[in-house]
């Protein structure tokens, strides 16, 4: 494989963002690791200069051991047929701040609202960060790794007891086989 178009895109990116780490993951998939400050400029160039009109998604990863959140922006080009995943890392605080790209892509408002609800990341410049799915939820952002779902569910809700005799017999037999 030669990865002709992929290498051309990386060359273009490298001209402007010299410190960005670019790599080809596989055919038609490029990963770009950026500084947090550059994401707005990067997104603008993707849209205006480099022919990536489509923002597929924004996703968030909680790296709890490294005390960082990773935001992944997926850009797709219809002409080049390449997906560029731009990754930035932001510190893992109670309310980490980062720039919103909603002024470039309207759908980004929706993705950012989702991430704000599930991870508590605040996007500066996005004024529509109200609750989306969890309208009656007051607790911590539930997709953070330090929120232990099972523990919360066991304490908050009550469960129906179900322990019939036939089930106990099966459990006993299972122990013997082990």
């Amino acid at each position: 494989m030669e990865y002709k178009t992929e290498n051309e895109i990386i060359k273009e990116i490298k001209k402007v963002f010299k410190q960005a780490k670019c790599s080809i993951k596989k055919e038609r998939r490029i990963e770009v690791i950026l500084n947090k400050r550059n994401i707005m400029e990067f997104a603008l160039r993707m849209q205006k200069n480099w022919d990536f009109p489509h923002l597929s998604a924004i996703s968030c990863v909680d790296w709890i051991d490294e005390k960082q959140f990773e935001l992944v922006y997926h850009f797709w080009s219809y002409n080049k047929k390449v997906l560029v995943s731009a990754k930035i890392r932001i510190p893992r605080e109670k309310e980490p701040h980062t720039d919103s790209i909603a002024s470039l892509w309207q759908p980004a408002k929706f993705f950012e609202r989702d991430i704000h609800e599930m991870f508590g990341v605040v996007f500066d410049g996005n004024n529509e960060l109200e609750k989306y799915i969890l309208t009656d939820w007051d607790g911590p952002p539930p997709m953070r790794k330090d929120f232990i779902t099972r523990e919360f569910a066991l304490n908050f809700y009550s469960y129906r007891e179900y322990n019939p005799e036939w089930l106990q017999e099966i459990i006993k037999q299972g122990d013997k086989n082990d």
Partner: peptide, 10 residues
């Protein structure tokens, strides 16, 4: 879905 934070149990 018993161990979810949002699912109603009983």
């Amino acid at each position: 879905y018993w161990n979810s934070y949002a699912t109603i149990k009983k």
